[in-house]
Every structure is written in structure tokens, then in C-alpha cells.
């Protein structure tokens, strides 16, 4: 349980920092191109707690899935899970692209960032969380 909590906290901190750096700094201009699809900056800051809750939920569900069936495989299994979950997220973005007028470039770059985020999250969770059996053997 202790390692579960550590893995969750580490994953959450990484997702938060990466999300801020990639989306707010690196992709700032790309987001500006699709400004009409986003809330005004002041409104986003007012709803910032939803981002925190969403990222915490993302980290928690990642660790829960990893602990449920992947934990024996270590870092490699964590990275594999991250890749699989990001492919699912990319497929959801395909549906978003069909329904919302996002530029293709925007969704492509967000997906690149998503792959990096989920692979590193898998690496962190795989390195920290060990199932009880693996720890005692």
C-alpha cells in the first residue's frame, strides 16, 4: 500500500509538471491557433482545480490498472501499459477530430506529448510499485 501511494504521488507530480510544461509552454502557440475552442485564460484559472482532480484521477487509475495485472513485469510492463493507454487516448482523439474543428497538427502534437507522458508515467510507476510477492522473493 505504501508503494502504491508513492507510485501514485510520483505519477501525479510528473503528469502535472509535464502537462504544464508541454501544453502551457511548448505548445502555447499551437493552442493559440485553436483559441475559439477553449475557455478564456481567466476562466481556465478559475476552473484549475478540475485539472488537478483530472490529473490525479489519471494517475490513480494508471496505478490501479498497473497494480491489478501488470505489476509483476516491472518497468517494461509499466511502459507497455502506458503505450496501450495512450493508444486508447489517441483513438479517442480521432473521434474528437471527427466532431470538433481542431487542426490535425494540434491533435498530432498533443498525442506526441501524450505518448511521452504515459511512457514516463509507466516507467515511474513500474520502478516504484512492486507487488508483495515480488518484494518478498
Amino acid at each position: 500500500m505504501k508503494r502504491f501511494v508513492f507510485a501514485f504521488i510520483a505519477a501525479f507530480i510528473f503528469i502535472f509538471l509535464w502537462g504544464w510544461f508541454y501544453n502551457s509552454v511548448l505548445l502555447k502557440d499551437v493552442f493559440a491557433e485553436a483559441q475559439s475552442l477553449f475557455r478564456p485564460r481567466g476562466e481556465i484559472i478559475g476552473l484549475f482545480h478540475w485539472i488537478i482532480v483530472g490529473q490525479a484521477g489519471l494517475a490513480l487509475s494508471f496505478v490501479m490498472i498497473y497494480a491489478s495485472g501488470f505489476a509483476g513485469g516491472g518497468i517494461a510492463a509499466g511502459v507497455r501499459l502506458g503505450i496501450m493507454l495512450e493508444i486508447l487516448a489517441v483513438s479517442a482523439r480521432c473521434a474528437i477530430y471527427a466532431t470538433q474543428p481542431f487542426p490535425a497538427k494540434f491533435l498530432l502534437l498533443v498525442s506526441v506529448g501524450g505518448f511521452i507522458e504515459m511512457i514516463v508515467t509507466g516507467l515511474i510507476v513500474g520502478a516504484i510499485y512492486k507487488p508483495a510477492v515480488a518484494r518478498t522473493s
Partner: peptide
């Protein structure tokens, strides 16, 4: 559990869109 990953993204979408 997989749906919960999507739910996390839904929360983030609510904040920014």
C-alpha cells in the same frame, strides 16, 4: 479502470473547453 483514465481527461477538458 480504463474508463477512469478517460474520466480524468474529461475533467481536464471541462476546465479548458
Amino acid at each position: 479502470l480504463v474508463a477512469l483514465v478517460y474520466v480524468g481527461n474529461d475533467f481536464i477538458t471541462y476546465a479548458v473547453q
